[in-house]
Nucleic acid binder design. Structure first.
Lengths: 327, 327
DNA sequence: GTGAAAGCGCTAACAT
DNA sequence: ATGTTAGCGCTTTCAC
């Protein structure tokens, strides 16, 4: 790998000049510039990010902590963050957090050691874990999806999402609703979907029941057990609001395998609108999270913080009900 | 952010000593070690990866180029690579390649500039593109999924996969098969699935037809057009072998929406076994690619190359037919 | 066992 | 307009 020195020698100039044309900073004569450009090509020169980051103390890289790539939801988020970051001239360094607090600590450690200039954190964690982390981050940090009091957060309008889903089900004539929530112990922003569901059912006098699932466990089998139980315990059930599309998909499969017709016997609405939701049969009615805007806002917030601007403490991104064929 | 200097000062030793305890290299007195450890904790010190990489000329980071996160297939690969790399003591830097040759060039540029010590490349590209790239990589490179002559490659046993799928369909009594292949112009290893399909049909005297799809386009709608056409042109069709699970899922949806019963009227087998395939209804019969072994082998190959060992030019990972309910 | 010093590839004053 | 030089934070000889 050739270095700036090689280029300088080859072009017959000093390294400072090379650096100047590299960064388009400072004045360089056309001849020199030409010589340098040529030399760079000839030597197939690629500037060393590390060295540059070292001297500038900055990386132009945003660290992103994800719980996993298992749920396509996170992949979509990852992809959009990458895109938004690129538009702002930043790179992205992903870290998949292992289980529990330790996993998250490791991720943060890694990202800090990599000198990222900010971290987007998507992992839901209890308040205590957050507090512990916040003590020693010393880096711009924003929470995406999960909402944390002490940190600028960007979330979907989950109350609205819950409302939209519930009202839609009721409007379609459902009288006996079941909601499958995420892990309510984590105090996630997503819990608002569940609260909205409950409140709306109460207000409208619709019978309802809430079941709590252990989410990020990817316990696909655990989910199945839960769904099994739900169907057993709720023979009257005519509508399900699942807190994510994977769960909704599993409900559809279970229902169909038991001979229920969808939407005639049971109506189902999901949450997220991951890309397969439109592909399955019947295509899933769901609440779409705006991945692009979610990601862009989070990236924007990091960039702001890097530039010493203080972003809004909470950004709420609108959601949208996508009516397809399961309702 | 505290540096090694701060730690040294705080511990009352030289930076060399700090470096020694940091790397557990060279002899350090217990007292000194203690003082340093304490100082590191007190200052919340995190060694700077960049600086370390700069001086060592190595990163312990493997670069991975992916076409997108859109198909869950790639997410699963990404996740497994991360896992395998961690086990080998490496980090992973993902780069999502944009469209075409330029996107790939940019990705490679970025990864090289980031001083990764090797690149795992999953993107299918034409032979010319590959040749152009190979000229100036100067870095351990391995091709995953896509098979490239000049580069150590790790692939699934796609011939076997195609055979398994085709035989299974025939064994179930199908007489009129359709295969939806990927983009055959790219000369991917995956094309072997198609060749195996064709050969087996010929050998067994089963009527067949092959349709080519433009894959990585995520043209979900394009896919739909194609499927539509396939059903229109093949009223006799009683079995489909799709080259990936997403496509298979779309076939199922289309078939069901047209009133076909699965598997009674049409049997469908997919390829990949992405995690949702087991969740949809009916659960998809498919050829499972062994993500874990695929990834581990690729990582292993990079590590070998870093250590100046030459890996096998081609590793073929077995596949497995997972029979579920669409056949 | 420990410290001083050189240098990894680069940028940013400071000279010229 | 261009070159010289001092570091960025770290590892690694080489003395002591």
């Amino acid at each position: 790998m050739s270095t700036i020195k090689d280029v300088a020698r080859c072009a017959g100039v000093s390294i400072a000049t090379v650096s100047r044309v590299l960064n388009k900073k400072g004045a360089v004569s056309p001849e020199a510039e030409n010589a340098v450009t040529l030399a760079m090509q000839k030597l197939d020169y690629h500037p060393n990010h590390m060295a540059r980051a070292l001297v500038k103390g900055r990386n132009n890289t945003i660290g992103v902590i994800l719980p996993s790539f298992n749920n396509p939801f996170w992949s979509e988020i990852a992809q959009e963050i990458e895109k938004s970051a690129k538009e702002e001239g930043y790179h992205v360094l992903f870290s998949i957090a292992g289980e529990g607090e330790k996993g998250m600590d490791e991720s943060i450690s890694y990202l800090r050691a990599s000198q990222v200039c900010g971290i987007i954190q998507t992992f839901s964690a209890s308040q205590e874990v957050w507090s512990a982390i916040l003590k020693h981050v010393g880096l711009p940090l924003v929470a995406l999806i999960s909402d944390v009091k002490e940190v600028p957060s960007v979330v979907s309008d989950d109350t609205q999402g819950g409302l939209l889903a519930t009202r839609h089900l009721i409007a379609k004539g459902c009288k006996n609703l079941v909601h499958i929530s995420g892990d309510l112990k984590l105090q996630k922003h997503a819990d608002d979907r569940s609260f909205a569901f409950i409140e709306e059912c109460r207000k409208r006098g619709v019978a309802y029941r809430v079941y709590e699932s252990c989410p990020e466990k990817l316990g696909l089998e655990d989910n199945l057990d839960l769904i099994n139980r739900i169907f057993y315990e709720n023979p009257q059930m005519d509508g399900i609001f699942a807190s994510n599309d994977i769960m909704a998909t599993q409900c559809i499969s279970y229902a169909r395998s038991q001979g229920f017709r969808i939407p005639d016997d049971i109506r189902i609405v999901g949450y997220d609108d991951i890309s397969i939701s439109a592909l399955i049969y019947p295509p899933l009615t769901t609440v779409r999270q705006n991945y692009a805007q979610l990601s862009k806002t989070a990236v924007r917030a990091i960039v702001d913080m890097v530039h010493e601007k203080t972003p809004k403490p909470l950004e709420v991104v609108p959601v949208e009900l996508i009516e397809r064929k399961t309702t």
